Simulated scan of single mutants.
Amino acid sequence: MAGRLQDKKALVTGATSNIGRAIAEAFAAEGAHVVVSGRSADRGAEVVEGIRSRGGRADFVQADLDGGAAASHALAEQAASVLGGRIDILVNNAGIYPADGTAATDEKTFDEVYAVNVKAPFFLTAAIAPAMVEAGGGTIINLGSWIARLGIPVGALYSSTKGAVETLTRAWAAEFGLRGVRVNAISPGVVHTPVPGETHAGAVMMKGTPAGDVGSPEAVAHAAVYLAADESEFVHGIVLDVDGGRTTAAVIAA
């Protein structure tokens, strides 16, 4: 049986760990040929080897998305070349998260976080979306964050970048939607790969939610498959919350 993404060509940034890795693995399991992109060649090779060992198709393209347009354009060109000339699905996942408070954040850090989290996906989308239009269509999925809409006392800089990404999602849906490119976003809650015997520091933030605990990268990957697949063809410009109900519902614990 063909997968939901059979023969699609996908580029996933920040795909060497956590959510990005889970998305790359899920796409490959559904039949896509995936370019795994990230800074670490060793971790990239590990992800690719795992996908191939399960019968999937994947290649690694090393990239340091520092916010420069040149770096984003170079990744777009290299990924398209590896994928046979086209990219059907782009996942803008790569990002950095300094948890410093506002007063402790210096200008260098401010510029770096906006460069990686906003400028890099902006210029990568600018490089890839027109090619998708020319090819007849495509799908772009951005990664936002629940703290873009629910304030917490740390990470103001990071949360503001994710607010920008969610705004770009709506703007790009309007800009490219009529030309065949669907653009949506996923807003993950507190997510991590479980480690036996360890309690994640962010688990306290999930108290009082319907889920009651942190989520897995695979939960976000399932949402990404849905947004990339044909069954979401009428879905444009949304931010899909995959956050255990953190931003929508409060549970009164007994």
Rank of each mutant, 00 (worst) to 15 (best):
P121F: 00
A103S: 13
Q78A: 14
D88A: 10
E112S: 10
D100S: 15
L83T: 13
T102R: 01
T109L: 15
T109Q: 14
E107K: 11
I87L: 12
A80P: 09
Y114E: 02
V91N: 03
F123D: 05
A103Q: 11
V118F: 01
F110R: 12
I87K: 08
V118A: 06
I89H: 11
A104S: 13
A104P: 03
A80S: 15
V82S: 08
T109D: 09
V118Y: 00
D88C: 11
I96V: 15
T102V: 15
F122S: 10
N92V: 06
A120H: 02
P121D: 09
T105M: 05
N93M: 04
V82F: 03
G95M: 03
D100N: 14
K119E: 01
D100H: 12
Y97L: 08
V91S: 07
P98A: 13
A99P: 01
A99S: 14
A120W: 00
Q78L: 09
T105G: 07
D88P: 08
N93K: 02
A115E: 02
G85C: 05
A79R: 06
N92I: 06
Y97S: 12
Y114L: 13
D111I: 02
A103I: 13
A115M: 01
A94F: 03
R86F: 06
N117F: 04
G101K: 12
V91G: 07
V116N: 00
G85R: 04
A79E: 07
N92Y: 07
A103P: 02
S81Q: 13
N92R: 06
T109I: 10
E112R: 15
S81M: 02
A120P: 00
G95C: 05
D106Y: 09
T105C: 04
G85M: 08
Y114P: 01
Y114Q: 07
L90G: 09
V82R: 14
G84R: 00
V91T: 07
G101C: 06
E112G: 02
V91W: 03
I96D: 08
F122E: 05
R86M: 07
D100T: 14
A120S: 15
T102M: 11
I89C: 10
V82M: 04
E107N: 14
E107Y: 14
I87D: 09
V113D: 03
G85T: 08
R86A: 14
V82E: 04
I87N: 10
V91M: 03
D111K: 11
L83Y: 05
L83D: 11
L83S: 11
G101M: 08
E107A: 15
L90C: 10
A99R: 13
Q78Y: 00
V116R: 01
S81A: 14
A94W: 01
K108N: 12
G101Y: 02
D100W: 02
N92K: 08
I89K: 10
I87R: 08
L90K: 08
V113T: 14
I96C: 02
G84E: 04
D106P: 10
Y114R: 09
Y97T: 10
T105S: 10
A115R: 09
